[in-house]
Design a protein around this nucleic acid. Sequence first.
DNA 1: TTGTACGCGTTATCAG
DNA 2: CTGATAACGCGTACAA
Lengths: 321, 321
Amino acid sequence: MVSIKDIAKKAGVSISTVSYALNGSNKVTDETSSKILAIAKELNYVPNAAARNLKKRETKIVGVFLTDFRGDVYGDLLHGMKEISNLQGYDLIVCSGEQSHKMLPERMIDGAIILDQMFASEELLKYADLGHKIVVLDRELDHPNINQVLLDNKAGATLAMEHLIELGHKKIYVVTGPEGSYDSMQRMKAVRMVSERSHDVECIEISGNFEKTGGEKAAEQIIAEYKEPVAVFCLNDEMAIGLWNRISETDLKIGEHIHLIGFDNIELAGYMQPRLSTINYSKQKWGALAAEQLLKLLSGDTVENERIYVTLVRGESANRV
Amino acid sequence: MVSIKDIAKKAGVSISTVSYALNGSNKVTDETSSKILAIAKELNYVPNAAARNLKKRETKIVGVFLTDFRGDVYGDLLHGMKEISNLQGYDLIVCSGEQSHKMLPERMIDGAIILDQMFASEELLKYADLGHKIVVLDRELDHPNINQVLLDNKAGATLAMEHLIELGHKKIYVVTGPEGSYDSMQRMKAVRMVSERSHDVECIEISGNFEKTGGEKAAEQIIAEYKEPVAVFCLNDEMAIGLWNRISETDLKIGEHIHLIGFDNIELAGYMQPRLSTINYSKQKWGALAAEQLLKLLSGDTVENERIYVTLVRGESANRV
DNA sequence: TTGTACGCGTTATCAG
DNA sequence: CTGATAACGCGTACAA
């Protein structure tokens, strides 16, 4: 590996001169500087990140932690984060799995954005205590080094419920996310609130998992209990699709017997026939805002917790009874 | 930041003893070892990655380079890579954009997997010359430090073409990928080969871009020229969907007037009505194999170039004329 | 303008 | 078994 030492030797100068020249300092003659640069190029010199990081005590990298690389939601989200990060001279890397958690405390990255239920809150708080900057997208954590950028889950769930009720539905199945999911819990709170103030509406909870399988399982129960047209609010689109798949195997029709609404507006939702009703929000903006907040934290600014707004997408999967 | 020096001071031993204890060497009494470990925990000691990397000259991280985080193909692919990497004690990070290219030469990562047409081959060869290990999934490069794991594009394109011909089609539009795309070029080679040996088949090339917009544009031309049922082979599913969308706005029906086949078998393909015919391959296996090859390169083993096999998925988007 | 010397945190070598 | 010391590559205050 060629280091500044090698360049110094070849150029007949000291390593500090090389370092100055490489970093464009004006402490070096243009002549020697250009000579050094030429030699550096000739020797294929590349600075060593580890050495630089060790000295500068920062890496100019932010890490995003996801539960899994699969899932339609992530693409735009990451795109938004990357744009903002790059703009400010930071690189963005995506990590997944418990093994990579150590990257934050070991200072491989300068900060982290968390969208991974498997990343325990206690662990995050521990890192925050050590001075690491974190933005969470999937929970609420009160700590000066942690900022949260959350979806307006309550507004979204309320929109969905009120939409179904407005369409005249009196019996609504609600398929939840996995236990412990912040998004699921928030959405359920809103669901129950709407349910309580709508006395003539029967609300039946089915526990799900935010995956297709959860929707399929819920479908079983709904099919078994079916007497007359009902409404179903799946707390995310993925489950709505799973439920849809299972329903398709029966004589029941989505939008006619089963009136369905989801949450997330994933790409697939737009291609279902009839179109899946759902709750939409800008994933890219969400990512961008998260990155923005993290960078502010890193530069020592104070930041407010932000919220991402949501809207109703009226498809034909839920209609008037 | 607490370092081994702090621990050494507090424990009244030297830093080397601390290092040994921390790394579980048997050169230390159990007594001092456990004392040191206790102090380390008490002080919230976390080793510094930069210092370790600097010394050990490796990071135990492999990087994957993608053009863009969006795109359905990546999820399973990355999942496959991560599984294999983690199994061998490596972390996997996902990078995108030119800014992050430097991570390889700067030794932030031990090796790279490339699926990014924007990552120039000359650049890759330069890094390979410097001794860096690379696996490419989107081109052919002959270099001892570079291994390639490629799709069997020719087999796939041949399967698709022969399927359409077998169904009795005499006029086949082929929508290509962007210029310079290796996958597109390989698939086109096979298309032309089949076309040449099928004298009664007319083959019309339309240049695309592997994105929805390419399919939409191709649709315009096909609609304008439409006289009787024709077949279309979009060199990837994304374009097939784009084409589909545009066709849906006309009176023409997919599977009846326009007989369509794609390539990739993305999730959405399975949800189109009628189901999109396409070429399938295991994305997870592809990723796993890529990671495997990279790890072999890193451990100095010699590796053969591998190929990912493909199969035909018969949907109802292409039928007998 | 250039060179010297030290620090960053870890590991490895060599003495004791 | 333990300790002192020297790398690793880079950045920078300070001295020349």
